Amino acid sequence: MLSFTTDDLRPQDRFDHWCEVRGKTLFGVTIELERPQRSDFYGRFSARGVGGAIVSDMQASSYRIGRTNADIARMSGNSLCIGLQVRGPGMLETGRGSRQYVQAGSLTISHSDLPFQATPERSDGFEYRMLKIPLSADLLVGARGHDLFAAGLPHTAPQARPLEALFMALTRADVPPTDAESDVVHAARLALIIRGRLAAGSVEGRAALRAGYLHAARQILARDLRRPDLSPERVAAELGISLRQVHVLFEPTGQSFSRTLTTLRVREAAQLLRARPSRPVADVAFHCGFESLSAFYRAFQGVYGMTPRDLRQAESEPRRTRPQPEAAMA
């Protein structure tokens, strides 16, 4: 884990430090900012390894940034970069006669060793998150990756939702993916498919798509688990796939759609039972999407091996080991 901030530096030193020490020697970019704006500059950066890739997160004052041929010659990387403009939209240029508007919440795909220049639209700072994946012959499976000039992800692409889901799963710091190395490869291949470098119908392409849709389905379950009407049909409709495909997505996990949803609901209920000891059990059960109290008790017993009341009693006794759910969703 690498992390640093300008907070501990003198205000008059912050931009120069960020520009020269961080920008040129770590990021491999050229940074520009009008002199009157430098006294209020701030920057925070963190990076960590995930499945052989690097996830980085940056928050800073607004500035112009570019990767020049000189920057590339000094610091090459041969990596696929998938970036999320969390906050702070702007214009992106690649020196190829076109300008693209990158809005907040959108993904971009690029190769690390191609020039670009980005200009912020606003002056109130930005946040940018990136997944940087080293390219190899095994990952590329014959596809081209070196010519991927920076471009926004078209939301109309069939693979857009699966790629977004994989990106979010890989860049979450609180819940690391269970098979990060495979997910990194799948994310890279979905990006290559979207940019027309890899065939969607290839063995690798189909595997990447299944992995992405599985993460997308899990996101829907986590988001809507409190809805009693959450069903495979609803998930299939949102993802634009068949009902059978939804069930097939969960087969490799060893847990069905129904079992996965039930475990998520029980875990949510357990958190509420711990946080609100006086809240009625029935209220917790219905709040978490269970349609009957008896169904909730059966599900809770199956996951934790005890009743909700037993859980609360165990939580009130600090010497006892807290009960853990089964490994169904580990």
Rank of each mutant, 00 (worst) to 15 (best):
T262R: 14
R122P: 01
R189M: 05
P280R: 15
A207P: 04
F41H: 12
S3I: 12
R223Q: 15
M1V: 12
V266W: 02
S231Y: 09
M130A: 13
A199T: 09
A270H: 04
Y297P: 00
A295G: 10
S46K: 10
I31C: 04
V175A: 13
R218F: 02
F45T: 06
R234I: 11
V175W: 01
M306N: 05
R96Q: 11
E268C: 08
I220F: 07
A200M: 08
M306L: 13
E181M: 06
P308H: 11
I193E: 01
G51T: 05
A180C: 06
D57Y: 15
S110A: 14
P158D: 03
V141Y: 07
Y101C: 09
Y304E: 02
L214M: 10
R197T: 03
P318A: 08
S79N: 13
N78G: 09
A330S: 12
V303M: 00
R218K: 10
S278G: 11
G302M: 05
A208M: 07
R267Q: 14
P177D: 01
L264N: 05
F286I: 02
L9I: 03
L166C: 00
A47N: 04
V203H: 13
R129P: 01
S123C: 07
S46C: 10
Y128L: 10
L2A: 14
E238Q: 12
A207W: 03
R96W: 04
L84T: 03
P177N: 09
G49Y: 01
P176D: 10
E20R: 13
F41Q: 06
Y297K: 14
S112H: 10
D40M: 08
A191H: 03
G23N: 08
G88D: 05
V55Y: 06
E121I: 06
V50W: 00
A165H: 05
G240E: 14
T108M: 07
A160T: 00
L148S: 07
A200E: 12
D283W: 05
T68K: 04
L221K: 04
I54N: 07
S182A: 11
N78K: 12
G196M: 06
Y128M: 08
S258Y: 12
R227K: 14
A236C: 11
I54Q: 10
V281K: 10
G125E: 00
L214V: 04
A217P: 06
V266D: 00
E251V: 13
E268K: 09
R99P: 02
A104V: 07
R244E: 12
R319N: 14
A73E: 11
R320Q: 13
R38I: 02
L26F: 15
T30I: 05
C288V: 01
M91Y: 09
E121Y: 08
A53I: 05
P228Y: 06
I54F: 05
T156Q: 15
F250P: 02
L249Q: 07
F27W: 11
L214E: 04
P158Q: 08
V235I: 14
F4P: 00
A191T: 04
D71C: 14
A169W: 00
R312V: 06
Q313K: 13
R218S: 09
L114K: 07
R244L: 12
F300R: 01
I241G: 11
P280N: 14
H155W: 01
A211K: 06
S278I: 06
D124N: 11
T178K: 15
A53W: 02
R244C: 05
A330I: 08
H215I: 05
I65R: 13
L153Q: 00
F290T: 10
G302K: 03
E233Y: 11
D174G: 06
F300L: 07
